[in-house]
Simulated assay, not measured.
Amino acid sequence: MTVSDPVRGRATDSGGPVSVSRGTLFWYAFVSTLLVGWFFFGWLVLRQGFIDSVGEVLGTAFALLLAVSVIEAARRHRHGGGPRPG
């Protein structure tokens, strides 16, 4: 699917694969590992129950995603507001 990009004044392909940097992949893996570790720590060490541990990890993951979203929105607003070049 081709979409017109008003900032750059050209058509962009929004259906193709987007490359992700190694640093981003590292942080995805790191945070995922921490969340899985947090789940097992709560479930097996603190003995707080399976559902409680899942809920705590999902809540933490949602809060991290929300924080990343707010930070990225603030960065885009500060740097001109348009989509990031990619």
Rank of each mutant, 00 (worst) to 15 (best):
F26C: 08
D13P: 04
P83V: 03
H79D: 12
V54I: 15
S32F: 08
F41S: 01
A63V: 04
P85K: 12
L44G: 03
V68W: 09
V18W: 07
R8K: 14
D13Y: 06
V57E: 00
T60E: 04
T60W: 04
G23C: 10
T33L: 13
V7K: 14
V45A: 14
P85Y: 11
V57C: 00
V7D: 15
W43Q: 04
I51G: 01
F40L: 06
G37A: 01
R78V: 06
A73F: 08
W38N: 02
F26K: 06
A67Y: 09
G23Y: 08
F40D: 02
L34N: 03
F26M: 09
T24L: 15
T12L: 14
A29Y: 07
D13E: 14
W27P: 04
S32H: 05
S53K: 01
V68K: 10
T60G: 08
D5S: 15
L65N: 12
E72G: 03
L66T: 09
I51A: 08
L66W: 08
G42W: 00
W43E: 04
G82Y: 04
D13A: 09
L25E: 08
L44M: 10
F41L: 05
S69N: 10
G42S: 03
H77P: 01
L35T: 01
G9Q: 14
G55W: 04
P17V: 12
E72K: 05
L46M: 13
G9F: 10
M1F: 15
E72N: 07
E56I: 01
G42C: 02
L66R: 04
G82S: 07
